[in-house]
Amino acid sequence: MSKTLVIGAGGQLGQCLKVVAERRGITEIVFPAEQDANILNESGLNDLLAKQKPAYVINCAAYTAVDKAEDEFNLAKAINETGASYLASACLANGATLVHVSTDFVFEGNEVKLLKEDDEAEPINVYGLTKLDGEKAVASILPAHFIIRTSWLYSEYANNFVKTMLKLGAERDELNIIADQVGTPTYAIDLANAILDIIASSSNVYGLYHYSNEGITSWFDFARAIFDISETKVKVNPIPGSAYPTKATRPAFSVMDKTKIKETFNLEIPYWRDSLVECIKQINKLEAI
Rank of each mutant, 00 (worst) to 15 (best):
G183D: 09
G95A: 07
P185Y: 14
A88E: 01
L75N: 03
K131R: 14
G109N: 11
F146Q: 05
G134E: 00
V162W: 02
K131D: 03
T184C: 15
L196W: 08
F107M: 08
Y154V: 02
V126M: 11
N74Y: 09
L175E: 05
A170C: 09
H145V: 10
L166D: 08
V126Q: 09
G134K: 04
L175N: 00
G95P: 02
E111P: 00
L175I: 06
N159E: 15
G83Q: 10
N110V: 12
Y154P: 02
N74R: 03
L129S: 14
A170E: 15
A93C: 05
Y187V: 08
L168M: 13
I195G: 02
K116F: 12
D119R: 08
K113W: 10
R149F: 09
S140D: 13
V112T: 15
D104Q: 07
F107C: 01
N125G: 12
N176K: 14
A76N: 07
N193K: 15
C91H: 05
I147L: 04
Y157W: 00
K77N: 15
L175P: 06
A76K: 04
E70D: 08
Y154R: 06
E135F: 09
I148W: 05
C91E: 01
V138I: 06
G83D: 08
D119E: 15
V99D: 01
S85W: 02
T164R: 00
A158R: 01
N74P: 03
A192F: 11
S151P: 04
V126T: 15
D104P: 03
A137G: 09
L175G: 05
G134Y: 09
A192W: 09
N110D: 15
K131T: 06
A93G: 07
G95R: 12
L196H: 03
T82I: 15
A158C: 00
T184Q: 07
E117T: 15
G128L: 13
E174Q: 14
N110F: 08
F73N: 01
L168K: 14
I178C: 08
